[in-house]
Design a protein around this nucleic acid. Structure first.
Lengths: 263, 263
DNA sequence: TAGTGGTCTAGACCACCTT
DNA sequence: AGGTGGTCTAGACCACTAG
C-alpha cells in the first residue's frame, strides 16, 4: 500500500505544483504561530484527500521550501499531527497519512478485552437495516437538521463463538450516498468508510454506563432478562469535526472488560 | 504554594550544587539520545522528592549548563515530561512540578459526569477500615509478597445528595506507615498521599464492566437487588511504576456516565 | 549510495509574567 | 526591567531504509 511507483511519484509532483500555486506563501501573523498555519494547510489537504491514506508526504525539506518556512517549523507541525494520529513517521522511510489497518482499528476503537488481555475482532450479523428520517436524539448527536435522512443498522456481534454485543448504528445518509439497505458490511467499518466514501474517522467520544438487558437483547445475547449490560455510546467524527456515526452498543461483560488509561 | 521566597530560592540553589556534584556530566551514549538521559535525571529527582510538587525547576538555561547540553535538548526533555503530566510549564513563569489540585483530580481521576456534563466531587463515608494480610488478588494487583500487609477501606460516596458509589480500596501498608484504622480521610486521596507520604500517583489503568448489585450494595445505593451497576477497577501507580492503590468502585449509572476519548 | 527522519547545537527574537 | 518559556531559523551530524 505504501509502495511507490514512478507514476505515483510523478502524479504527486504534478499535484504538488498546483498545491504550491494554491497555498498562499506563509507570513507571520500576530498571535498565530507559523507551525500552526503549517498544520492547518496540511490538515486541509488531508480533509480534501489531496494526500490520501497510506500516501507519503513530501520531505520536511520540500514542505519547508514550498511554504517558505524552516525545516524545524515543518518538523514541529508534522510531529504535532503524529500525536493526533493523523500522520505516521518512520525514520529512513518518510511521513505517511494514517490508514485504518486492522491493528489500528482494534487498538483505538475496540477496547473490549478478554480475561487474557487479548483483543479479538468480533464477527457481526446484521439483523435490520433501514433508511428513515432522523429522530430527535439522532439529530442532536449527529448535528442533523429536521427531515435529514439516516441509515439505521441493528446488528449482533460475536466474540469467540458466542454473541456478546447488540449494536445500533446510525449514519447520516448524506455522507454515504448509495449506501442503502445492506445486509452485508465489512467488519472494519471505518476502513470501509474511508475506502468507499472518502470519510476518515479521526477520533471518537465514548461514554459508558450499566443498563439492564431488555427482553430482545436478553434473547440475542443468551442472558437473563434484566441482566446487567455495559452500554457504550460512541460518536465518531472526521478530521474536520463532523460527526459521521452514532453507535450504541450493549455488551455482555461477564467475560470481557472495557479498558482505559488515565494520567 | 508556588510563591517563592528568597529563602526558598537559596535552599534550592544550595541543593542545586549537590545535584550538580551528583549528576555525572552527560555524555553521548550510542542508542540513547541525550534528551532521554536528561529526562531520566529529572524523573529521578522527582521520585526522590528533590524537587517537590508545586516547586519551580531551574530555567532551561540553568539545567542546560548544569548538564552540559544545549537549551534545545533540555526543552525537548521538559516538554516530553509535560505530556506525561509530570511537569507544567507557563510562559513567563517557569517550569513546575505537577500537583494534585482539586481540578486536576476531578479531570484525570474522576470521569463520572452528570447529564449536564458537569463533574462534581463526591462526598465519602467510610464504612470500615482494617489492616490485614493481602489476599491473592490483592497481591497480584499490587505486586505484593505473601504475608504483606494492606489497609482495606470500604466506603460509600454520594454525588449530589444521593449515594451513588460503593468503593473498596486496598493500599499496601508499606507505603503508608502509620495509616491505621482511620474513619476520616480527605476527599482528594491522591493529594493526601502526596502531602502526607510523599507518594505521587502518576497514572492509573482502569477497566470497567457491568455487574449486578449484591444485597448490601443495593441497600447502600437505594437500588433494587440485581440492579445493573458499573464496576470500575483501577490500579494507580507512582512515577516509577509501583502500584499504590487498588480501587474497586461500583456505581449507579442511572444518572451518571463514565466518559473516555478515543483516537 | 542517496534520501529520509532523528538528534543536537547555537543563537535570535517574541510574548508573557513579575517586580 | 529582567527573567521565563515559546517560536523560529540554519546548519551539522547520525540512524535507518531502500534500491
Amino acid at each position: 500500500m505504501a509502495a511507490k511507483t514512478k507514476a505515483d511519484k510523478m502524479a504527486r509532483s504534478a499535484r504538488a505544483s498546483t498545491g504550491k500555486a494554491r497555498a498562499a506563501r506563509l507570513k507571520r501573523e500576530p498571535g498565530k504561530p507559523l507551525y500552526a498555519q503549517v498544520e492547518e494547510i496540511i490538515r486541509r489537504r488531508l480533509i480534501d484527500n489531496y494526500w490520501k491514506p497510506g500516501e507519503m508526504l513530501p520531505s520536511e525539506f520540500e514542505l519547508a521550501h514550498e511554504l517558505s518556512v524552516s525545516q524545524g517549523t515543518v518538523r514541529k507541525a508534522l510531529n504535532d499531527m503524529v500525536s493526533e494520529n493523523l500522520l505516521e513517521r518512520r525514520q529512513g522511510r518518510g511521513t505517511f497519512v494514517s490508514e485504518y489497518t486492522e491493528r489500528r482499528a482494534l487498538f483505538f476503537y475496540f477496547n473490549l478485552i478478554g480475561p487474557d488481555g487479548v483483543r479479538a475482532m468480533p464477527v457481526s450479523k446484521i439483523l435490520a437495516c433501514e433508511q428513515r428520517n432522523a429522530t430527535e436524539d439522532e439529530r442532536n448527536r449527529l448535528q442533523l437538521a429536521i427531515g435529514d435522512s439516516v441509515i439505521a443498522l441493528h446488528r449482533v456481534r460475536s466474540l469467540g463463538d458466542s454473541p456478546a454485543i447488540v449494536e445500533r448504528l446510525t449514519l447520516p445518509q448524506k455522507f454515504f450516498p448509495g449506501l442503502g439497505n445492506e445486509t452485508r458490511l465489512p467488519e472494519n467499518l471505518y476502513r470501509f468508510f474511508q475506502g468507499e466514501y472518502g470519510i476518515t474517522v479521526a477520533k471518537a467520544t465514548e461514554s459508558v454506563r450499566a443498563v439492564a438487558a431488555d427482553p430482545l437483547e436478553a434473547q440475542l445475547l443468551s442472558v437473563m432478562p434484566e441482566a446487567p449490560l455495559l452500554e457504550i455510546d460512541r460518536v465518531a467524527v472526521t478530521i474536520d469535526g463532523r460527526p459521521v456515526e452514532w453507535r450504541l452498543s450493549r455488551c455482555n461483560t461477564s467475560d470481557y472488560r472495557y479498558v482505559a488509561e488515565r494520567g
